[in-house]
Amino acid sequence: MKHFKPYIKAIGKVFIVFMVAMYTYVNAYTQDMTPLVLKVKAKLDQVNSYTADGVMKTDIVFIKAPISKVKVFYKKPNTFKLERSGGISLLPKGGVSINMSNMLATTNFTAFAAGEETIKGVKVRVVKLIPMSESSDVVLTTMYIDEANLLIMKAVTTTKENGTYEMEMTYGKFANYGLPDKVVFSFNTKDYKLPKGITLEFEEGAKPNDANLLKNKKGRVTINYFNYVVN
C-alpha cells in the first residue's frame, strides 16, 4: 500500500486545487470543515478517561457467539480497550478499537465538507477526513456530524490493513460528553479467511449458511453501553 501514498497525496493535492477552484462557484462544497471537527474533538476531549459496561452482540456469519458482557476503558489521548469479562472474544482486527476519540486523536488532518444528509431524522454534515500522517492506518474517514449537538452520528473509515468499517452511534444520557449508548460496527467479511478444519472434523453439511450469503454478508458488532464512569 505504501507506494500508493505519493499518488494519494498527489490526488489529494489535485483534489484540493480542484476544490479551491470550485470555491468560487459553489461555496458549500469547498468549505474547510476543520473548525467543526475540532469543535467535536474539543467536546470529546472534556473526558479524560472513562469506563463503561456494555453488552456485545457479534453478528458475523461464520461465528456463532453468545451475547456477552464487555467492559471498555478509555484514557486520553488514545488508549481504548475492550475486554470481555472473563471470556473469549473474537473481533475484527483493529475495528473495535477505533472509537471517536481515537479517530480525532491528532489534529494532523485535512477535513472538508462533502454535503449534507439526514440520519435518523437528524440533519448531518458529511465531512471527509484525511489524516496527514504517513504512518496512520486510516486512509480516509467520512463523518456524519450532527452540527447542532456536535455529535458524530456515523463514521465510515477506510484503513490500509483492516478494510473498511462503518460505525453508527446512538446517543442518550451521555450525549453531553459525546459518548454513545449504542455503537454498531459494520464491516465486510467478504475477504475474511475462514478457519480451515484443523480439528479434523469430518462433519458434512456443516455450513451454517448459504455460501453466497456468506460472500455478501456484512459482519456486525453491536455494543450497548451503560454504566459510564466519566472522569
Binding site: 473474537l90 478457519p195 480439528t199 456443516a206
Partner: peptide
C-alpha cells in the same frame, strides 16, 4: 473451529 465456522 468447525470446518467452516467458529463456535464460541
Amino acid at each position: 473451529l468447525k470446518s467452516s465456522y467458529i463456535v464460541i
